[in-house]
Design a binder for these strands. Structure first.
Lengths: 198, 198
DNA sequence: GTCCGGATTGAACGGTCGGTCAAGCCGGAG
DNA sequence: CTCCGGCTTGACCGACCGTTCAATCCGGAC
């Protein structure tokens, strides 16, 4: 029954399973057999679609980040005003702010990316691309607001860097379940600083 | 010759070796035998002083953070003015700002702490303590400045949270060798935002 | 119906590594 | 000198896991 779909794209199926396993168990505790089990498939098949475990893990991490970025991008673009866009971006970046999300979310994957990027040049390269795209999205929102006069003029790239860094730093605390930093608190703090800086 | 110092504290010696190995190779790639080799000692001895590898690693991470905090604390306390204290704290927190430091420094250990804290309750508890102490140090500097009138009144704890988060987020970028975020840039951005927020 | 070739399986291999342990080393107490 | 007991060794065990591979399955082309 499950194997009655030979044309189904196994490659992506495996990537999705890998992302789920990594999120749940962490990169270091992720085994090929875990991913295979999650797919309802034998371990050997995983290595049939991917050259090695390491390659698969790196691909899975960027795959997950791509998907998150696209989702965020699409949702933000729907809002007309720059400030609302920025607020939405902050909310989507706040672990656990939106109801129905898992306690371990995209940010847990970011931390794994950072660790791996420290020593794996391939991951380091990917990370820089992803981070640049992320900052560019923030800068784009700010630039849009400046062009319509909603925001005063200023260095949009520098503002994006600072706001992005603040989001990163606070998201870590929220992700860690720090009792002093709630999702709500993070959102308010980010927007408060952003308003003053812009 | 090397074993002619029976009273030397092996416990701490092992911790120091562990910190160096973790910094160089990463937590996931750290083997007991690596630490033993770094000590010039047999692998069996490591487990004579520590119950398990996991325990040793957690102890090593908090050991390193303790040492960094104490160094920072001592150096900052020497400065009389609150603003200089804050500036010094930012500089000490900027990877690669001070000459002669390794490319992989304390911040690489922080990222390892975060990853482990996601699933290891013991590490999670330690992390919260370390982070609270870190924020408290920033808040203390701000409070000192407010008492002497150097800074205007304000919620020192909230300011510390925001400045701390900004430092975290920017430090990650610098640690990752992001070509757009130099140590100098990080320092200036942190102090710029801090000045405006305070 | 036959056959081809990609998809899939699962057993097996080889290496790694954390942890155990019996034996030896050695400084100091007596 | 002798003996005690903590320190140290290094061989060894057992488990785990990434990877390989020969065998099998199976849908579609013809």
């Amino acid at each position: 029954m499950a194997n009655r779909r030979p044309n189904r794209d196994r490659h992506q199926e495996i990537l999705e399973a890998a992302v789920r396993v990594i999120t749940e168990r962490g990169l270091a505790e992720t085994r090929i057999s875990d991913i295979a089990e999650r797919c309802g498939v034998s371990p050997g098949l995983i290595l049939y679609y991917f050259d090695s475990k390491d390659r698969l893990l790196v691909e899975a991490l960027t795959f997950a980040n791509d998907r998150f970025y696209l989702r965020m991008s699409r949702e933000v673009r729907r809002l007309p005003r720059a400030w609302d866009r920025l607020a939405r971006l902050v909310e989507l970046s706040t672990p656990g702010y939106l109801p129905g999300e898992e306690p371990l979310d995209e940010w847990a994957l970011w931390v794994e990316i950072w660790v791996r990027a420290l020593r794996d040049p391939e991951m380091a390269k990917e990370r820089e691309v992803l981070d640049r795209r992320w900052r560019a999205a923030i800068a784009e929102i700010i630039r849009g607001g400046q062009e319509t006069g909603e925001f005063p003029p200023g260095d949009a790239d520098e503002l994006a860097l600072r706001i992005g860094a603040l989001i990163d730093g606070l998201a870590i605390q929220v992700l860690m379940n720090d009792s002093e930093v709630t999702p709500r608190h993070m959102r308010d703090a980010c927007l408060d600083v952003a308003a003053r800086e812009i």
